[in-house]
Amino acid sequence: MGTSLQPTLYLTVNGEKREVPAPDVRATLLDTLRERLGLTGAKKGCDRGECGACTVHLDGRRVLSCLTLAVAAQDADVVTVEGLATDGELHAMQRAFLDHDAFQCGFCTPGQLMSAVACVREGRAGSPDEIREWMSGNLCRCAAYPQITAAIADVAERAAENESTPAESGGGRS
């Protein structure tokens, strides 16, 4: 391992303070989550910002963990797909992906879910066209796009119907 910036790197992931001893300053957030913290939900599809499989939330915004240096994420709140469910209860978006059959192999799914939750929260899930545009950063080799779009539209509709309960009310901190 290479250049250590400091003896230990501290990251806040899914609400928990996590330690990464002897960090490599060159490591991406994606590699650090997967290889140092055992959080293998975020996937490495392309490792160059093109596929969206590594999408996580940083301070509530969807970003690509393969283009984020772990050291640069020290002061931020990181939420991964592992942090979507609360107390064993699936997030509304996870439920909807199951209900709508929105995946086949599942490789892109963690990134799709993180992006989808943000998409609804950003208010960009008002129509299938709008969902397709605002989910265009997440590729699916199995082409589950119609089902993914339907799942997101479903969650967005239910969120809109129930004004008093925000979209992310299905559980989870994100």
Binding site: G49, G52, T55, S115, R124
Partner: peptide, 9 residues
């Protein structure tokens, strides 16, 4: 340009 994730960064 780019994607929502990239534009956030």
């Amino acid at each position: 340009a780019a994607s929502p994730q990239l534009r956030n960064m």
